[in-house]
Simulated assay, not measured.
Amino acid sequence: MTNRHRLTSVETVEDEGAWLFTVRDAHDTNQEVMLVPCEETGVTAWVNNCTHEDQRLYRDEIGVVTRDGGIVCPKHGSIFDSCSGGCENGPAADTTLLSVDVTVDDGSVYLTDDAVDFLWKGGDSSDDDDSGPSSTSHLTF
């Protein structure tokens, strides 16, 4: 589907803590994808959904909450490793976020996943409900 599409710079992802974009998959479904810093590769790309429940990990108002190199689910507090996508705690334990292939070249991040097409920077507002994600957590950020 896609060849190589420049998304942003590694510096932008590091400065902002994450960078959100929307793709269309082979089933003609829009998916939000987030770029997050990773010490091993510069950045990694993950579908913006907790594996435990349909819960966005990146939110427009706060971006991505991270702790000790992990992405924190705002609903139950499960923490996904930013580099591997794996989770070892909470309700999402023993699962891994869905990855999207990106390549870092000369400080720029490129979408290189043949299974998706880049649509736009930012989230997919077509499925927004104004209520926002629910939370049973007592975590505050």
Rank of each mutant, 00 (worst) to 15 (best):
G63N: 07
N49Q: 13
V23D: 02
A26C: 09
T41I: 07
H76C: 07
F118P: 04
D128F: 01
Y58R: 00
D127V: 01
H52C: 03
M1Q: 10
T95S: 15
R59M: 13
G107L: 01
G63F: 04
R56T: 15
D113C: 09
I71L: 10
T51S: 13
S9Q: 10
H76F: 04
G17I: 06
F118M: 10
C38K: 01
D68P: 06
V116A: 06
E53R: 14
H138N: 14
V65E: 12
H52D: 08
R67Q: 13
T44C: 09
D124S: 04
L111C: 10
P91A: 14
T136K: 10
H52I: 01
A92L: 09
L57G: 02
D113R: 05
L119R: 02
G85F: 05
S82Q: 11
F118G: 10
P37F: 01
G63D: 06
S137K: 00
M1T: 12
T41C: 06
D129L: 11
M34I: 12
G77N: 06
G69M: 07
L7H: 02
L20C: 09
N3A: 15
P37I: 00
D81P: 08
N30Y: 09
C73E: 03
A115N: 12
N49H: 14
E88G: 15
G17K: 01
I62L: 09
H5P: 03
T95Q: 13
N89W: 02
A93S: 15
F118A: 02
Q31E: 11
S78F: 08
G107S: 04
K121Q: 12
C50P: 01
G69Y: 02
F80D: 08
N48Y: 03
M1V: 09
S126R: 15
D117C: 04
V104F: 00
D129N: 11
S135R: 08
R4P: 08
V10N: 05
P133Q: 14
M34T: 14
D81R: 02
V64M: 06
L35I: 02
A45D: 07
V10R: 04
G107I: 07
T112D: 11
E39F: 03
L97V: 07
V33S: 04
D54L: 12
P133W: 08
R56H: 11
G123S: 05
G132I: 05
G132Y: 03
S84K: 08
T95D: 12
L139I: 12
S126I: 00
S126Y: 07
G123L: 00
V47P: 10
P74L: 07
S84A: 08
R4G: 11
V33A: 03
